[in-house]
Amino acid sequence: MQNDKHSANIKDVAALAQVSTATVSRFLNGNLNRMSDATAERVRVAIDKLKYVPNSAARQMTTKSSKLIALIVANTDDYFSTELFKGVSSILESNGYIGTMLDSDSDLQREKNLLAAVNSHTFDGLILQPFSTISTIENIMRRRAPIVIVDRETPQSPWPQVVTNNFDAAREATAYFVKRGFSHFIVLTSDLSAATNRRERYRGILAAATNVDVLEVSEASYNHRDIHEKLIQLLTKTDERTVIFALKERWILEFVPNLVLQGYIDNVKATATGFADTAVSRRLEPKMKLISQNPFLLGASAAEVMVQALKDGGEQNDDVIVVPAKFK
């Protein structure tokens, strides 16, 4: 038996509303100033009655806009990425855009693949938390679309950046502990060479302390017990008062609680600090002083820059916007 169901198209809507297809198209694209309120209401009623779903591909061909913005984050295992996306979405959606989050999973090749995918699809813009160099991004992103760098200071970037004051915040926190008699620092971090924000934080620590050990944790695969034992070895190898300085909140949450429970961190002989994205880390040990950054605000600020670039027809500058982290 032949299926008599018929999906409504733009001509059906125009016929029912007694307007032209151009008028329906203007309604769908939000150009209501070019029609009367009565006409707009007839089109709306016709769309509802016919349950018409606009063909987004066809609309993109006409408007040259998908209203989609790609956000490539470093690792969705981090609270940072989730809060960043919330901030981005809050601004994009209020301006008629939709954010799509893509996860590079701390893998450089995966990031390159995602960049290529964004380049070949109809995203209106890209907000990027990059591992790749500027030249790599430029070589892959051949299509003209606004780009905003977020969280990673990127020298010689031709695009605007929204970052945290990583160096200054790390130096301030380190100086605070040095002034209070802590002289040994254990930097707990992902691969230092992979991301500029980590290197800036490390530089800030070195600017205020001389006795610094580094313990790198692979984001791809690591043995929790092995890292825990290495931390204990570093904590007990000296009589100096020691600070474990985590360069991201994930490592605070992974490794500090057991050290507190076992008495290695007592806030007298040893303590911990680091960059925190949420209030969770502070609840582990209320006496810990942490560097609170605001990924939601970073994301919202990056989205504001993106929306302005889209309003300006894709024109961009190389401004650097700093959203300060607070040591408290």
Rank of each mutant, 00 (worst) to 15 (best):
M1R: 07
D4W: 15
N9L: 00
I10N: 01
V13I: 11
A15S: 03
A17P: 03
Q18E: 05
Q18M: 00
S20K: 02
T21H: 01
A22E: 01
S25Q: 05
R26Y: 02
F27L: 01
N31L: 04
N31F: 09
N33M: 08
S36P: 04
A40G: 15
R44T: 00
L50H: 11
V53P: 00
S56T: 08
M61K: 09
T76W: 07
D77E: 09
L84F: 10
S89D: 14
L92V: 06
S94V: 00
I98Y: 05
D103V: 06
Q109L: 10
R110H: 15
R110C: 14
K112M: 13
L114G: 15
A116W: 09
A117S: 14
S120W: 12
D124Q: 10
L128K: 09
L128Y: 12
L128R: 06
P130E: 08
I134R: 11
I137F: 04
I140E: 07
I140G: 05
I140H: 09
M141P: 09
M141T: 13
M141Y: 14
R142C: 13
R152K: 11
T154P: 06
S157M: 00
S157E: 09
S157Q: 03
P160M: 09
V163Y: 11
T164W: 10
T164R: 08
N165F: 06
A169Q: 03
F182Y: 15
I186F: 06
V187E: 10
T196H: 13
R198N: 15
R203Y: 07
R203G: 02
L206Y: 05
A209V: 08
E219K: 01
H224Y: 11
R225P: 05
D226K: 08
E229N: 13
L234F: 03
T236E: 15
T236C: 12
D239N: 07
I244Y: 10
E249S: 04
L253K: 07
I265D: 14
V268F: 15
A270G: 08
A272I: 00
T273E: 02
G274I: 02
G274T: 07
V280S: 10
V280D: 15
R282N: 12
K287D: 11
K289L: 02
P295N: 07
P295A: 00
F296Y: 13
L298A: 10
G299S: 12
S301A: 13
A302G: 10
A302I: 05
E304L: 10
K311C: 07
D312F: 00
Q316G: 06
D318C: 09
A325M: 04
K326E: 09
